[in-house]
Design a protein around this nucleic acid. Structure first.
Lengths: 213, 213
DNA sequence: GTCGAACCCATACGTTGGTATAGTTTCGCG
DNA sequence: CGCGAAACTATACCAACGTATGGGTTCGAC
């Protein structure tokens, strides 16, 4: 089992994985077996610390988390992961949870909150939703990242010109606002279009919106 | 009380209102009093039917709903409202709820799910959040509606030209695609800009995105 | 110091966009 | 039938855009 966990950190697989976190070894094993039965990779962890140290949280997939963790609270761990910038979808399980707990978890973005006992199918459905959510987030994030990378190659002036262009200002207006000549604006503008790989102003507007302008 | 309810349907107030739905008269009264104490308009209803018939659900505000309604299920009522196109935020209360209930409600977009007994402050906080959510939704909806109204005045051709423009096509390309001359495209394009009240292509792109293009 | 990056400007030329004017055709409606 | 809306076209003209060429300054890094 230790080998299996280590490999989870090492390999850069594209198939989604389920990280099971529960302090009960028999439950861990049962869940991992359940996922293996549908040919889905799964790895078990004893607690939050174990997960953080031994799992590759950058991989596509989701976390199946018992609310009551040894040492830490599952809900706090959820917030902790978010602070770390981790966006892996989380599904909670609990044997002794209550309504406020579940509400708090769902408000914080949990995919589901399953009260034991639950059917295998409930887990599988939740994981399926979590996988889809992860794919969506990753796709969005990849698109944003690609645009952000392009934007990094812009100089300060080019940034300013781009901002003005997507506001719909004319070259002469941009020139006046920046205190430079119109011909220079055209120069920067051309550079922006090339660097941002935008084939039209409409294209540029959409890419700029991904940057939050 | 009946008068107060009627007036709720009649007047077109801009201040947000809370519609309390609970089958227990003493709870209804206590909650309405609570909201009056913070100068917030509130009206009580016995059940789903009562609410649908006697409340103005187009007003800004939110619904405070007991999960166990006489006759109907609160969660089903939530879905029913959504099918009716109503977007009023819902806060659930319950004395005998369970976790699956709360999870289902939150998944369906409920603002909160409060298990009795709860503190007055919990209710007030939830209502505050619900009011804010309602304001946000309404603001977004108003912006969309305004653009949609403008778009209604476009002819079919103008629509087609707009779609092509926001794709970043040049006039000559648009002309070729539509099988018309470039000068005609310019004509339509000018009409589109005027009717959509867009002062630049960037402006038009953003408005078109609100229309779902 | 010299090299490159960033920034700036000008002339020149061609393309694209925008508007105005004026006219034709088609089509649905009262 | 007559009328208006929608769609289309043409000529003409001006504004805005885009790029190429050539050259200038500043500033920090090597």
């Amino acid at each position: 089992m230790n080998d299996a966990r280590k490999s989870a950190k090492a390999q850069g697989n594209d198939m989604p994985v389920v990280y099971v976190v529960d302090d009960d070894p028999s439950i861990r094993e049962a869940l991992v077996d359940l996922f293996l039965s549908i040919r889905t990779e799964a790895h078990a962890f004893e607690g939050a610390q174990d997960l953080l140290e031994n799992a590759d949280l950058q991989r596509p997939g989701c976390i199946l988390l018992d609310v009551r963790l040894p040492g830490a609270n599952g809900l706090d761990f959820q917030l902790h992961l978010e602070k770390l910038g981790n966006r892996m979808p989380i599904i909670f399980m609990t044997g002794h949870g209550d309504i406020p707990m579940s509400v708090r978890a769902m408000k914080a973005g949990a995919v589901d909150f399953l009260a034991k006992p639950f059917r295998d199918q409930d887990i599988l459905d939740a994981v399926s939703v979590a996988f889809q959510k992860d794919r969506d987030v990753r796709q969005q994030s990849a698109a944003n990242g690609a645009v952000a990378d392009l934007a990094k190659s812009l100089t300060r002036r080019e940034h300013e010109v781009m901002a003005a262009v997507v506001q719909g200002l004319m070259n002469k207006q941009i020139a006046f606002n920046l205190g430079i000549s119109e011909i220079t604006v055209k120069l920067h503008r051309g550079n922006v279009m090339r660097k941002m790989e935008a084939r039209s102003v409409a294209d540029l507007v959409r890419k700029a919106e991904l940057l939050g302008l």
